[in-house]
């Protein structure tokens, strides 16, 4: 579903990604971990066609980036730590706008489905600027799955959420992933990543330094694996 070969990304003289190889099969939930500045966000921005690769090959859902970006975007949902929602529009209006931008024809029905999925049906007529951070983030997930994408990218979705909001987001994330979608999530929250993902890749110094599945983690879990990878 996602295939990346020898990806390099440079910003002027600075090389952020130095030959990343990455592959995700359909239905996999991959947690992309790594320290700050490792290039996780840049990597997701390239996968989502918001940034161009300097070198290398990127294929998402069978389409090449950046040449077939529109086809990729139609099959992709993105949730970042920013909600990508307009504060002066209601939840309903925000979703209607994105539905039009994605060419969804039966959008009233779909918006109701999505609002029920993220538990915000009762707040559909409220302005986003009155939402808490957790509610806005749940609606951001609703926005990302509105067009029923095959692939979803989560970039630090838990940033700025309190414990209750994070737990609620866990449930929404699990239900989104349970629908057979391919998910890539970056996170600094190892416990949450371990709970949700089926595979763990560690990106450090611009390359994927290690990759393991949930079954191969061993009894010490993700934290030990992560520390050993970064130390080595």
């Amino acid at each position: 579903m996602i295939e990346v070969k020898k990806l390099v990304k440079r910003f002027g003289m600075k090389t952020v990604l130095r030959g990343v190889d990455f592959r995700v099969e359909r239905g996999e939930f991959v947690a992309l971990l790594g320290p700050n500045g490792a290039g996780k966000t840049t990597f997701l921005r390239i996968l989502s066609s918001l940034a161009r690769p300097s070198l290398g090959e990127v294929k998402v859902a069978g389409y090449h980036l950046p040449h077939q970006a529109a086809q990729v975007r139609a099959r992709l949902g993105v949730v970042s730590h920013m909600p990508l929602l307009y504060g002066d529009l209601t939840a309903q209006e925000n979703l209607e706008f994105y539905a039009r931008m994605y060419g969804i024809t039966n959008y009233q029905l779909r918006i109701t489905e999505v609002l029920e999925l993220v538990g915000l049906e009762a707040r559909r007529r409220d302005l986003i600027r009155t939402f808490s951070r957790g509610m806005a983030q749940r609606l951001a997930i609703g926005r990302a799955v509105l067009h029923d994408p095959e692939v979803i990218l989560f970039d630090e979705p838990y940033t700025g959420l309190d414990q209750d909001a994070s737990s609620m987001l866990d449930e929404v994330l699990k239900s989104v992933a349970a629908q057979g979608r391919t998910v890539v999530m970056t996170s600094h929250d190892l416990a949450r990543a371990e709970d949700l993902a089926t595979r763990f890749d560690i990106l450090t110094r611009g390359v994927i330094a290690a990759s393991t599945s949930r079954g191969s983690l061993g009894r010490y879990g993700l934290l030990k694996y992560y520390k050993e990878t970064l130390a080595g």
Partner: peptide, 13 residues
């Protein structure tokens, strides 16, 4: 609120 990214992610010209 990062809405520019939201716009640019839409599959439109």
């Amino acid at each position: 609120r990062g809405c520019l990214d939201g716009l640019l992610l839409a599959p439109v010209d």
